[in-house]
């Protein structure tokens, strides 16, 4: 009789133990599920944030180029002409913007200005003449060995006026400034 009682208690304990293990198992499954879900959510929101910052940087850099006093046209009293680049300044820009100071403004980016109207080929009738392009700033994202390490390049284009005083009087032409930002 005592033996039967002991066996009954043991079985009860075994059932309780199995119950506890099952509860713990379910608990850990739920916990793992929660951690995975939270990690995925954080990962996706981090990616969104990075994308947002990248897009904002691209816009900010384009704005900064458009208002750069080193490139912009002036109207006698030092007033800037909006969205206008002085060709005489553009000719010197590439050398000037190599200075480290400008890296703090533009970081890893490429900036070029292209004259789109009048088309120099049509103008001169020379088929071999290339379109007028001014490389203004060029810092590609590279590692110490010089290998390209950027994953993405976001390009923003903006139409600008180009003021040309090389022929004696001021002539206005149409150009496009392209700002490429690396990620």
């Amino acid at each position: 009789m005592k033996k039967n009682k002991k066996m009954g208690r043991d079985r009860k304990a075994q059932i309780q133990m199995t119950e506890t293990v099952a509860i713990l198992f379910i608990f850990f499954v739920l916990l793992t599920f929660g951690i995975v879900f939270y990690y995925q959510f954080q990962k996706s929101s981090l990616q969104n944030k990075q994308e947002e910052i990248f897009q904002r940087q691209a816009i900010e850099k384009t704005t900064q180029v458009l208002f750069l006093p080193e490139l912009s046209c002036t109207k006698g009293e030092g007033e800037s002409e909006d969205f206008c680049f002085d060709i005489l300044k553009l000719n010197q820009a590439e050398e000037l913007l190599k200075i480290d100071y400008y890296y703090q403004i533009f970081g890893f980016a490429t900036i070029t200005v292209e004259q789109v109207f009048p088309d120099e080929q049509d103008f001169s009738g020379d088929e071999s003449s290339s379109p007028k392009i001014w490389p203004v700033y060029d810092r590609e994202k590279k590692d110490a060995e010089g290998n390209v390490i950027w994953e993405r390049k976001e390009e923003t284009r903006f139409v600008v006026t180009l003021k040309d005083e090389s022929q004696g009087k001021a002539e206005y032409k149409v150009g496009v400034v392209t700002v490429g930002v690396y990620q």
Binding site: P69, E70, L71, L88, K89, N91, Q92, Y101, S166, G168
Partner: peptide, 21 residues
């Protein structure tokens, strides 16, 4: 002033272009 020094470099280049013209 630091920025002014750089902007002035751009104007030095422009002045040289005007002189040669």
């Amino acid at each position: 002033f630091e920025r002014a020094s750089l902007v002035t470099r751009a104007y030095i280049g422009k002045t040289e272009s005007l002189v040669s013209q």
